[in-house]
Structures are given as C-alpha cells and as structure tokens.
C-alpha cells in the first residue's frame, strides 16, 4: 500500500462504511429496544452480517467468512433455537424493579460511550500501515493466519481446543435431565386421560366453519364465536391468533342476503313462467 493510502481509505470504502455503519448501529439499537426476543435476535444477526462485511473491507478475509459461518450461521441460530424453546412464552416484564433504573442505565451508557469516544479521539493513531504487506507476505491472509496460529500462538490454540471440549461437556451436563420415574406406556396415558375426563377425542381443527383454514385462525362454533381449543397453545400464548369470527359472520350475512335475493328473483321468474304456461 502506498503512503497516501496510509491515512485515508478509498471513496468506495467510505461510502460502504457510512451506509453499512448506519445499518449496524440501527441493528444494535433494535437488538436492545425490541420487545420480542425473536426480533432482537434477527436484528443482531443483521448487525453481525454487516460486521462481517467490515472485516472483509479491512483485509481480514478469513475472519469475515468465519464471522458469517460461526456467528450468523451457528451462534445466532442457536439463539433462535433457545428463543423458540424458552422465550416464546416468556414475555419481558416492563415493570421496573429498581426505581429509575432504566434512566440511570441509559445515563451510565451515555457517559461510558462519551469516555470511550473521547479516549479514541485523544489517542495518537497517526501511523496507519494497512494490511497489504502482511497479507501478501506468506501468499495470502489465510496462510499468514495459519503461520501465526501454528507457531507463536500454538499453545493458545491448543487451550481453545480444551475450552471447546469443556464447553460441549458442560452444556450436556447442564441440560441433561436424569429420568427418575418409569416412562408411562400409551395404555396408562389413555387410562389417565379417561379418568381425568378432560378432552377425550382429538382437538378440533383450526379454521372449521371459518373462511380460512390457516392454523392461526380459530375455528368457529355454530353460534359464530371462536373456539380456543382449535388453535395451538403456543400461538395463543404469543397472542398471534387471528379472529375472523366477526368478518365471517358478516360474510355469512351478505351471502344469505344474496342468496335470498337470487331465490326471490328465481321465485318471481318461476311464478311468471307459471302464469305464462297457464295462459
């Protein structure tokens, strides 16, 4: 890289930085501010993809790809998995347990950010070498990283291997549950169901007697009210059940009116035909 490039990047990179940087900050803010954990996870995934692009722009080609594969591919999907397992029913309470905690936290964050930015602004970051020489020294970014990992950082690398194995074992130990009682057989389950007498036949299907048969639309009872039983419990707890009972009733009314009109017209025609025939 030339000495001119040492102090400024190309215009293309500047444009990329300002556009994608905005996206990254908005994604980070949405991660913090979104009410539902699923939305937070998706916003964080967007931020991580943007960061991967930044790594690529900074000459860290290996890290850019690893960021996409490991972070957005593995870690965020693990997060989504746990959110689906845990967070779907768990609504985030908005009640403050400590009075004024939220404002104090925001104030602390603001102060911390000001300190960090001021520190960076005051640091002497004059020389900017660029990665051109380092990336081409051994034939490429990946080769350069490999040479460092397997020579100078080889012990750290081995220890991360130990760490990963420990983490895998730890996760299994933490989530494993020993079954203490015998698993009940199907017959015992059926007998228990009959004894409790709660709901013996299979649950009714969604969308019956409604205009749609999507799973998030409650089936309508004969009197037009939606039935709770027809929609999955998860959807009910998420509050994602769509209610079409009123719409359906109005449609039904319109249909009846139309059919009445047609029937009336048919009857009138029929009467006229009959009169002509007798004449």
């Amino acid at each position: 890289m030339s000495t001119l490039a040492a102090y400024a990047t190309s215009t293309g990179e500047a444009v990329q930085f300002w556009i994608l940087g905005t996206v990254a900050v908005v994604g980070a803010l949405c991660t913090v501010l979104m009410r539902r954990a699923v939305h937070s996870a998706l916003c964080l995934a967007a931020t991580m993809i943007v960061l991967a692009v930044f790594y690529l722009a900074n000459g860290a080609y290996f890290l850019g790809v690893v960021q996409i594969v490991v972070y957005t591919g593995a870690i965020m999907m693990l997060f989504l998995f746990v959110v689906m397992l845990v967070g779907v029913t768990a609504a985030d309470s908005l009640k403050e347990t400590i009075k004024g905690q939220r404002w104090l936290a925001a104030l602390c964050g603001l102060g911390f950010g000001v300190l960090l930015v001021a520190g960076i602004g005051n640091a002497a970051l004059r020389n900017f070498n660029g990665l051109g020489a380092a990336n081409t020294a051994r034939g490429g970014n990946v080769e350069g990283l490999a040479a460092l990992i397997f020579t100078r950082y080889v012990f750290a690398f081995e220890i991360t291997g130990v760490l990963l194995i420990t983490a895998a074992v730890g996760a299994m130990v933490l989530t494993h549950r020993e079954r203490t009682e015998r698993a009940r057989t199907q017959r015992e389950l059926a007998e228990q169901r009959v004894r409790e007498g709660k709901h013996l036949p299979p649950l009714p299907a969604p969308g019956v007697y409604a205009r749609h048969n999507a799973v998030d639309i409650a089936g309508l009872l004969p009197d037009g009210t939606p039935s709770e039983l027809t929609v999955s419990r998860t959807l009910r707890e998420r509050g994602q059940v769509r209610d079409v009972s009123r719409e359906a009733m109005e449609d039904l009314k319109a249909l009846e009116q139309r059919s009445e009109e047609r029937l009336g017209r048919d009857r009138a025609e029929h009467d006229r035909d009959g009169q002509e025939a007798t004449r």
């Binding site: 603001l110 911390f112 950010g113």
Partner: peptide, 13 residues
C-alpha cells in the same frame, strides 16, 4: 465503541 456502548447499555436495561 458505539456498538460496545449500545451492548453495555442493553445489558443494564
């Protein structure tokens, strides 16, 4: 620094 601050604030909030 900005992203770090947002993350730290999120942990507190």
């Amino acid at each position: 620094a900005l992203l770090f601050t947002i993350g730290a604030t999120g942990v507190l909030i």
